[in-house]
Design a protein around this nucleic acid. Sequence first.
RNA 1: GCCACCGUGGCUUAGCUCGGUAUAGCGACUGAUUCGUAAUCAGUAGGUCGGGGGUUCAAAUCCCCCCGGUGGCUCCA
Length: 660
Amino acid sequence: MIKVECNGGVHEFPSEISVGKAIKEAYGKKSGAVAALVNDEEKDLSYLLSQNCKIDIIKDNSDRGLYIMRHSCAHLLAQAVTELFPNAKPTIGPPIDEGFYYDFFMDPINDDDLRKIEKLMRKIVKQNIPIKREEHDNETLRGIFSNNSFKMEIMDDKIGQEVGSSTYKQGNFVDLCRGPHVESTAKLRWFKLTSTSQAFWRADSSRETLVRIYGMCYSSKEDLQKRETLLREAAKRDHRKLGKDLQLFHIDEMVGQGLILWTPRGTVVRNELQQFISDHLTRQGYKQIYTPHIGKLDLYRTSGHFPYYQDSQYPPIVKRDTLSRLSDEGCSCSDLSNLMSEGEIDGYMLKPMNCPHHIRVYASQPRSYRDLPLRLAEFGTVYRWEQSGEISGMTRVRGFTQDDAHLFVTEDQIEQELLGCIELVKVIFGTLGMKDYRVRIGLRDSNSEKYVGSPEKWDKAEDACRNATASLGVEFSEEPGEAAFYGPKIDFVVKDVLGREWQLGTVQVDYNLPERFDLTYTGSDGEKHRPVMIHRAPFGSMERFCGVLIEHFNGMFPTWLSPTQVHILTISEKHKDYANKIAESLRDTSIRVEMDTGDDTIGKKLRTHRSMRPAYLMILGDEEQQNGTVSFLNPEREQKNGIPLKDFISKITSEINSKI
RNA sequence: GCCACCGUGGCUUAGCUCGGUAUAGCGACUGAUUCGUAAUCAGUAGGUCGGGGGUUCAAAUCCCCCCGGUGGCUCCA
C-alpha cells in the first residue's frame, strides 16, 4: 500500500503507480499537469511511485510548467532538425524566458529551412510521440553519444552532477538530459520558431561556431497570441520607428554608424532633461564644468584606458607632421602602433570617458579637506568603438553624452555621497514614472586577481554601497564578479515593455584613478591624503536614456518634455489672426507652440497633428474668437471647450512646472 | 567582428522566382475650396532601384565585393 499526499488529501494505492495516474486520481483528468514535484523533486508524469510520498502538481501554465514545456519544445526542435539535417549535431538546448533555443553544430540555415523545421515539428506533435526517460550507466551513455563530441564534453565536465545520467528519447531522437519533460510531443502545440543566429560553443568565440534556433512556446493558444500581439505593439513603440516618425533624431549613413544627430524636436527633450538634472546638481552642491572632446594619449596612458581598452576606442589622432616624418623614415603601421603603445609618439584620442579630464580639473589646484567633497559634473560626450553588429538605434551607439559627474571625497564621506547619488537617481526615475527597475550592486569576485586596491578598502567600499542602497529603501541584488576592476558599483537597470533590461544609471566607487594620477588633498592633520572618487551618471547616457524614454512614453511625452506642447489648429483662414494672437501669448510664457493655419479641413489637421503626439491640440474657430476663449484636446485627448486663455495658461504652466 | 535576413522617390510600398531601364498611396508643390473634431477635389514635380564591379545584346531583377539596417552571438572600462 502506497500513501500519496496530494491536493490536500491522502490517496492510497495498492501497488506502484505513476505520478500521472496518481494526479489523475487526485485532480481529475484535466489537471493541466506537465510534471510534478515528488517530495519537492521535479519528476516526469511517468515516474513510478513505490513508496509513501508527497506530490505537488506542476501545471502547464505555471512558471515551472512553462519552463518544462519549453525545454521539451527545444527537444522537439532538435528532433526535427536532426531528422531534416542528419549531420547536425545537437549541443545544448535550454528553456529561456518566453521560449527556448537549441544550438546545433551544422551548416548555416536560412528562413526557408526554418519554416521546414517548424513544419516538421508540427507533424511530430500530431504524431503524439511519447517522450521516454531512460537511466544509463556511464559507459552506455558514452556509447550513445560517441559521435557527438559536444555531448561527450558535457559528460566529461558534469556527468553525475547536474546532467544526471539519464536520456530522453522520442522517436529516433535521444538527448542527454536530466528532465523532466512532458509525456508526449502532443503536449507541445503552441509554439513558433522565431529566429536563427550564430552562437559559439560554450559562449567562447574561439570555439566552434554553432547555429542557434530560437522559438517561443506557451501552454495555450491565447498566451501565444498574447505574446505575438505584445511583440507587434512593442515594434510600434520602438524608439527607432518613433524617433523617425516624431522627428526626434536621425542616424545618417554618411555621418557614420552609431552617431546620433539630434534633430530640433529631440533636442528639446534632451535639453529639458539636462535642465532638470542641472537643477538637481545645483541643489546637491555640484559644480558644472566643460571639457574638450579629445585629450592627449599620455592622459589615457596614465588613466590606464590606453592601451588596455584599445579595442573599443577610436584609433588615436596623430599629428600630420609626425605622420609625414615617420612615413619618410619608412615606418610601417605596426611600427606606428608600437611606438604609440610604448609612449614614444604622442597623439590625441577622442575621449572614451570623462574622468581623466575631470581629474585634471581636480588637480589644477591644491586641495584641502575643506574642499571635499568636490563634485564636478559635465554633460560630457564620449566616443567608443562599439562592434558594428552591436550598434542599435540610440541604445548602443559610438558617440554619446553622459550626464557624468565625479565626486572627489574622503573615505569617510563615501557612504554619505553615495546616498546623494542614489537619491538623485530615485528622484529622476520617480519623476519620469519609471517604476520597473532593479538595483544591482556589483561586487568583486574573490577568486579574481584583476582588482586594484587593498581588500580592506574593497570591503569598506562594498559595505558603503550596500548601506547607502539599503538606507534608501531600494531593493537590490548583490552580484559578485560584476564590479569594475577599480571598485564596486551600483547599477540601475530598467525593464521595458518586452521585459528587456537596460542599464541606465550607475554609481561607482573608485580607488584606482586617484592613485594613478597621484591625487592628494591636505587633511586637517596637515598631511597629504588620497581622495576617493565616485563616478556617477543617473541617466547613463542621454542617447540611451532618451531611447528608453521614447518607448516608455510611447512617444507621448509628458507636457514638460513634449517637443511641441501646443499645436494650434484653425477652423478656417479667417481665424488666423486670432490664432496668431493666442500663439504669441503662449510663446510669451515659454510654451512651445506649433501652428497650422493651412487650408486643410479641421478633420485633416487633427489627423496630421495627432500623429506628432503633442501634449495639447488646440482648435480655434468662430466661437473661440468671439468669446476670447480656447478649445483643446488635453493629453488624455479629452475635449475641453470655451476655456479662457489665462485659465489654459495657468493650467499648462502648472503642469509643466510640476513635471506631470 | 561573426551568422541569417533585408536595402526601390521624404515615408510606406508593387515589380525581383521565369532579365527587356519602375507601381501605387501618403507627403511636397500649384490651383480650387474656407469647410467645427482621425484623410476636400484636381493637377504638377520627384526615383535609374544603397554603392562599386561582373555576366548579358539587355539587370531593380543573376553573380562578387563594399556600405547601411534588422534579429541574435560575442563584447560593453
